[in-house]
């Protein structure tokens, strides 16, 4: 399809979104990622039955923690699509990219630089 999506999005492949833990999401932000989106299969279509549903709960937990500590939970998001929906993936990637651009860079990075 050769669809384009923002080049500063780095894809990390996992066997199933059920593999993604709150800790992975928090560590990504702690290490300086401006945002993280988890892209899973459509709900009800998980090959491992409930991996994407678990992922959604973990994304919500991470959002809650990030809101509590003042980083902002909107830096973490969950999307669902089927593997045949390339254009939708590109659209979600652009959406997330625009959301992060509007939020600005991860505040942790700036504070870490100052502290160093």
């Amino acid at each position: 399809m050769r669809l384009s999506y923002p080049s500063d999005i780095k894809i990390i492949r996992v066997p199933c979104t059920g593999k993604v833990d709150v800790l992975h999401l928090l560590h990504s932000i702690e290490k300086g990622a401006d945002g993280v989106c988890v892209v899973g299969c459509l709900e009800g279509d998980c090959r491992f039955k409930s991996g994407n549903l678990k992922a959604r709960k973990r994304v919500e937990q991470a959002q809650k923690i990030l809101d509590t500590i003042g980083i902002g939970g909107e830096r973490v998001a969950m999307y669902n699509l089927s593997s045949g929906e390339g254009p939708l993936f590109a659209q979600y990637a652009r959406e997330m990219h625009e959301k992060i651009l509007s939020l600005g860079p991860n505040p942790i990075k700036a504070h870490r630089k100052k502290a160093a």
């Binding site: 800790l23 509590t68 504070h111």
Partner: peptide, 15 residues
């Protein structure tokens, strides 16, 4: 791990 990460980010956020 979750609590430690959250605390580190909280304090960094405070400078």
């Amino acid at each position: 791990g979750v609590l430690a990460s959250a605390l580190r980010m909280h304090f960094l956020q405070q400078g």
